[in-house]
Design a protein around this nucleic acid. Structure first.
Lengths: 342, 342
DNA sequence: TTGTAAGCGTTATCAC
DNA sequence: GTGATAACGCTTACAA
């Protein structure tokens, strides 16, 4: 492994001159540059990034802290982050918190120790202390997907509340009067916002009923259990609003087990697209969040922070949610029944 | 940011003594250790990992190079890698090659420059040169999921050929005589192996026909297109063997568009579980590869290499594939028809 | 346009 | 048990 000194000696210049060639910094005569380049090629010299980092305090590495890469929503988001970071010459370290504040803080301090240049964080809950921890070290941070309280920080997310309102309105317009809300955890802003939007629509229609709201976690198991609880109500809900894709899957499973068929026996709308929803396509209406783009935008924002001299004030980017209508109107219902009944 | 020298001064010892306390190396009197620890706590000292890496040549970072994190198979694999690495105190850098050899090589040299301690690689194709590149630098490497030729290297993968044989046999036993194979790229070992297993079963039954084999890529688009091509054959195939989950989705979409219903109009078996296959559950038989475990095992193998003084010779770990039978027998078929027809 | 000197923060080596 | 010294490979600050 040749070092910068070897190259310098080989080219008959000083190490700093080699450094200037590598980094395109400072003035170098074409002739010197050529000689240095030749030496680099000849020796197969590769700069030692760690030594560079020690000196320059930059690692060209970002970190993405999410709850679970296994959730397709976060998978897409992660891919967006990776692609954008890679284009800018940055690597990305991934961490899964499983919605645990402890894991989150453990990871964050590890990442700070690693001196990553910036952190993209989906906070495990709204009161996460990790952000302060990061900001204390003057490490740029961007929050993705969720809100946090009492912190001045860049955020890229969607407007869950408005879309939840819309989704619920659709069910109400369908004629449903008993709509169960299978939500995520109370401490997570998206869950809260979605319940709020739902509640708003239900109240307007005079249908609001606290018994219809089931908090849980953003998991299949939670969707399954709460769907069963909801089905035990009387009157039995005829429609379900689920807080995310995993909850929807769990709920669908419970409903299927109970012998209920969509769209005849119940309606279901959910946040997040279901991958492979191809077979469900005639039936499910979803609020599709632009996960990949959220990753891209968040990363771009973070990269901009990194290159800033005078930091601008924090921004909150709200990305549009697409409501994908399927099988909502009676006409559609009939069509699909024909298709299924064949 | 206090340094080791600050701590040393504070505790009235030399920097190296502090280093010994931090790393639990060498003999330290309990009294000194205590004093040093107190100084560390008081100053809130955190070791500079980069400086440590420069000296020790270890970064406590692994890299995972896959084709596409967006594929649920690789998502699970990635999660397995992350969990295992994290337990051992390692971070993981993720890279997506999109099956491109160029991207793969670009990433690999970047990672080597970053001096990651080890690399887990799903090679973009069987003739990948990246492995030699990695081994030249004496960086430990483990190949996941796929075979490579002419290289002495650790591999963790599944036996695609045997399972492909089994899957095909199931279709043949069902009475299908025209079974199309929608495969991945010829250059990827898993695709080749799966075609080989399929071909073997077809030959045995006297059903082999090269026109039924469609090479493509491991994508939805490829599955869609090749399914359409297959449907244009006469006689039209009554069953489909798809090379992976994405191909299966594309094929299902094409078949659905053509008005064909499962399981009445066709059968389909595939490699890789379909996430959210819940609604398809009564219908799809799959060869489920243990993706998460593959990630864990690969990482463990890599970590073992890292801690070895005398390197053992390379091993090839073959993980079992689970054939998940669904809707294969006639009885099942009838059951499901009742359920669907309601 | 190029070079000198110093230092980033840690640990290996050897000495006491 | 503990410490002095040098070194890891690079870049910043200053000089020429």
């Amino acid at each position: 492994m040749p070092t910068i000194n070897d190259v310098a000696r080989h080219a008959g210049v000083s190490p700093i001159t080699v450094s200037r060639v590598i980094n395109n910094s400072g003035y170098i005569s074409p002739k010197t540059r050529e000689r240095v380049q030749a030496a680099i090629d000849e020796l197969g010299y590769v700069p030692n990034i760690i030594a560079r980092s020690l000196r320059s305090k930059r690692t060209n590495t970002l970190a993405l802290v999410i709850t679970d890469i296994t959730n397709p929503f976060f998978t897409s988001l992660a891919r967006g982050v990776e692609d954008t970071a890679s284009d800018a010459g940055f690597n990305v370290i991934f961490c899964n918190t499983d919605e645990s504040i402890e894991k989150e803080e453990k990871y964050v301090s590890l990442l700070l120790q690693k001196q990553v240049d910036g952190i993209l964080l989906v906070p495990a809950n709204s009161a996460s202390l990790s952000i302060e921890l990061i900001q204390e070290q003057d490490t740029p941070v961007v929050i993705l997907d969720r809100k946090v309280f009492n912190v001045n920080v860049d955020v890229v997310r969607c407007d869950s509340e408005a879309s939840a309102y819309q989704l619920t309105r659709l069910l109400i317009q369908e004629g449903h009067t008993s709509i169960a809300n299978l939500s995520g955890p109370k401490e997570v802003s998206t869950a809260e916002d979605r319940v709020r939007g739902y509640w708003c629509a239900m109240s307007e229609a005079g249908l609001a009923n606290p018994d219809l709201v089931f908090y849980g976690s953003y998991t299949q198991a939670s969707g399954y259990e709460n769907a069963r609880r909801a089905m035990a109500l009387s009157p039995r809900p005829t429609a379900f609003f689920t807080g995310n894709n995993f909850i929807a899957i769990g709920a669908l499973k419970a409903l299927q087990e109970a012998g209920m068929k969509m769209p005849d026996d119940f309606s279901l709308v959910t946040f997040d697209d279901l991958p492979l929803s191809i077979m469900l396509e005639p039936m499910l209406t979803v609020a599709r969040q632009p996960a990949y783009e959220m990753g891209c935008r968040g990363t771009l924002l973070l990269l901009r922070r990194l290159s800033e001299d005078v930091p601008e004030k924090c921004t909150e980017v709200l990305l549009p949610i697409e409501i994908v209508l399927r099988q909502i109107t009676d006409v559609d219902k009939k069509l699909s029944r024909e298709r299924i009944g064949a």
